[in-house]
């Protein structure tokens, strides 16, 4: 096994923090992601990551704690999308797009200003791409608290959320408050992606939110199992990614290691391909995927 685990892996505090934080974020993203994919809100999920990034950049500039900026930006973005009309299927794409476009403009401004005002270089890349290896151990409790809040809230609305994801008409006939449930989910989504964006970067945030759940939904037949499988796949991809990124330091003579996000995303893509192959073998005649109408 020595070839797999390069020297210092077991004793390294940074690695241990990365593995623990990665575990928490991967599990939370997987649970939130199952509902995100089922509701067809991948775009909103990704957009909120970028909106949170704008908040994070603003926090850098204002000298506020980054976590406040990321989560605050995400929640504000969710509110704006809701106000413009993310609830209606027709206008949803545009509502998401307009908010995302405006947020990107703000991010550009904030990052430009903070790059000009401080001598610290790499703010842009840190905010955009993040690195799980730069996480300080003190963030672990904060991240755990936020994750706990996200999971508890999600458990509270799970059944109405599930029914409204299946069919808005059925849910409305059952008396589910569609608008409240939809808004609660958007806020939960914003908190989850804002939190993961700061810890692991915007790319990985989307990758962990969509990839493992999409794979799990291909093979699992029950929601509970899909959630468990997605969490497992997410944690596996994250840990494999951390390991390879650590090892890659020793691959090149220049000792220039490759980013964690590269390996995690590669693992997620492999998982997705395997899930697709498994699905085709278990279900030889797949029904043509129909665009679900009337979803919120």
């Amino acid at each position: 096994m020595g070839w797999l685990f390069e020297p210092g892996w077991w004793a390294n505090g940074t690695v241990r923090t990365a593995l623990l934080v990665g575990f928490v974020v991967a599990v939370t993203s997987a649970v939130v992601g199952i509902f995100t994919v089922m509701r067809g809100q991948s775009f909103a999920g990704h957009a909120l990551t970028d909106v949170a990034t704008a908040g994070g950049a603003g926090a850098f500039l204002a000298g506020v704690a980054p976590l406040v900026g990321f989560v605050g930006g995400g929640v504000l973005g969710a509110g704006a999308m809701d106000a413009i009309g993310v609830q209606r299927v027709k206008g949803r794409d545009i509502a998401t797009g307009v908010v995302l476009g405006a947020a990107m403009g703000l991010a550009a401004l904030f990052l430009f200003l903070s790059a000009r005002s401080s001598s610290a270089s790499g703010t842009t890349q840190l905010v955009l791409f993040g690195s799980i290896f730069t996480v300080s151990p003190s963030t672990l409790p904060e991240v755990s608290w936020l994750s706990g809040a996200v999971l508890v809230t999600l458990a509270a609305v799970a059944r109405p959320l599930l029914l409204s994801s299946l069919s808005v008409e059925l849910a409305a006939a059952r008396g589910v408050r569609l608008r409240s449930v939809g808004l609660i989910f958007m806020v939960v989504l914003a908190v989850a992606v804002g939190m993961s964006a700061i810890v692991i970067g915007a790319i990985l945030s989307t990758a962990l939110l969509i990839g493992p759940p999409a794979s799990a939904l291909r093979v699992a037949r029950r929601v509970g199992r899909a959630v468990a499988l997605a969490a497992g796949l997410g944690v596996l991809a994250t840990w494999v990614g951390v390991l390879f990124a650590y090892d890659s330091y020793y691959w090149f003579p220049s000792h220039r290691s490759l980013p964690v996000s590269f390996f995690v995303v590669a693992a997620i893509v492999v998982e997705y391909l395997v899930a697709s192959v498994l699905r085709r073998r278990t279900r030889p005649a797949p029904v043509a995927a129909s665009e679900p109408e009337g979803w919120t």
């Binding site: 990704h46 490759l258 980013p259 893509v269 697709s276």
Partner: peptide
């Protein structure tokens, strides 16, 4: 053509961005 449109887009997006991050780092 194999999966939901938004999922396919999200996966392509993160794959390309991760590749870009790798290029930048080396």
């Amino acid at each position: 053509r194999r999966t939901r449109n938004d999922v396919a887009t999200a996966l392509s997006l993160v794959a390309m961005l991760a590749l870009g991050a790798a290029f930048l780092s080396v």
